[in-house]
């Protein structure tokens, strides 16, 4: 009898301890997960703050507009900023139509089968190709095979292939979010499949699509490894640096940061790197904000939501 009571007491004490223990573990885990998430925000704040602090003294109108210098201090990044936008524009010109078309095909047309699997597998594989490997492919095709030398167009075409899979994904997701009832209603009224996509599905998806495209544009703007051996690491002297001709070497801003540090002999490498990093970061932030604003207003305009 006494033993039984004792056992019961012990069990009760144990389970109380168990509850306390479980609660403690649960709270610790919750705290840890919160810390991990806050750490991500802290990291981002640190990066932005640090780059602002580092780069602000380097920024001046002269720095943003003057040409880079080969040997002496005081070089600017004007042509590099121009080239970044130029290659970004060219890339989007090529990659958006192809990626959107392929995305529409996969999401709206293709029936399950060998061809769809092949396209999907190709897109996934393309998405994991490291950008330096893509850069060497660009070197083989555009520089060696087509003999374009280092050129803006070679760089843009390389980036076109590099960014196809991401844009296809964006397209597919944007189309996926359009309610199935829209398509059914349109078809029920006698519209063809293409008519439905063109008049109903795409306008409903255009907001999400644009947001995605602008976010990817931000990534293209900062791409480096794929451009070093396709668009090159130099700019033409004088007015030629702002040429519209796509068949000229076109060092972009991100490439310039790397090249200046790794290869150049100018004495003010740190200043150029700090200032350029700031410009790159501000552009990324800008692309993010613009993506959201434009996406929202387009969605409202085309769907009334």
């Amino acid at each position: 009898m006494r033993d039984a009571v004792l056992t019961l007491e012990i069990a009760r004490a144990k389970s109380a301890r168990g509850v306390r223990h479980r609660r403690f573990v649960d709270r610790s885990a919750t705290t840890l997960l919160w810390c991990a998430a806050l750490a991500v925000l802290a990291l981002l704040t640190l990066f932005v703050g640090y780059i602002l602090y580092l780069g602000a003294p380097a920024i001046s109108w002269q720095f943003l507009t003057s040409p880079p210098s080969e040997v002496s201090a005081g070089g600017g990044i004007g042509p590099e900023i121009y080239n970044s936008f130029y290659i970004l524009g060219l890339t989007l010109l090529f990659t958006v139509p192809v990626a959107v078309a392929a995305g529409i095909y996969l999401q709206e047309y293709a029936r399950p089968g060998a061809f769809r699997t092949l396209v999907q597998f190709s897109a996934e594989s393309l998405a994991t190709v490291p950008s330096i490997v893509m850069g060497l492919f660009g070197l083989l095709v555009f520089v060696y095979l087509l003999r374009w030398r280092f050129s803006a167009i070679g760089g843009a075409l390389t980036l076109t292939i590099l960014n196809l899979p991401a844009l296809m994904r964006v397209t597919q997701e944007a189309l996926f979010s359009v309610p199935q009832t829209y398509r059914e209603a349109s078809m029920a009224l006698g519209a063809t499949r293409w008519g439905t996509i063109w008049r109903i599905v795409l306008p409903s998806a255009v907001g999400a699509l644009t947001t995605g495209v602008i976010l990817i544009a931000g990534r293209i703007f900062g791409e480096t490894a794929a451009l070093i051996y396709t668009a090159g690491v130099s700019v033409a002297a004088g007015k030629g640096a702002y040429d519209l001709n796509p068949f000229r070497p076109a060092e972009t801003l991100a490439v310039h940061v790397w090249y200046t540090h790794a290869e150049s002999v100018v004495p003010d490498v740190a200043r150029i790197g700090n200032g350029s990093a700031l410009v790159l970061l501000v552009m990324v932030l800008l692309f993010n904000v613009v993506a959201r604003i434009v996406g929202r207003s387009l969605t409202r305009r085309f769907t009334g939501r």
Binding site: V40, L215, T224, A254, V257, N274, A277, L280, N288
Partner: peptide, 21 residues
């Protein structure tokens, strides 16, 4: 949006932060 920005930061800027900090 924070994660979106982290994706967008160019790799050479990550490298630059690594190099200088």
């Amino acid at each position: 949006p924070a994660i979106e920005v982290l994706v967008g930061i160019p790799s050479v800027v990550y490298g630059w932060i690594g190099l200088t900090l």
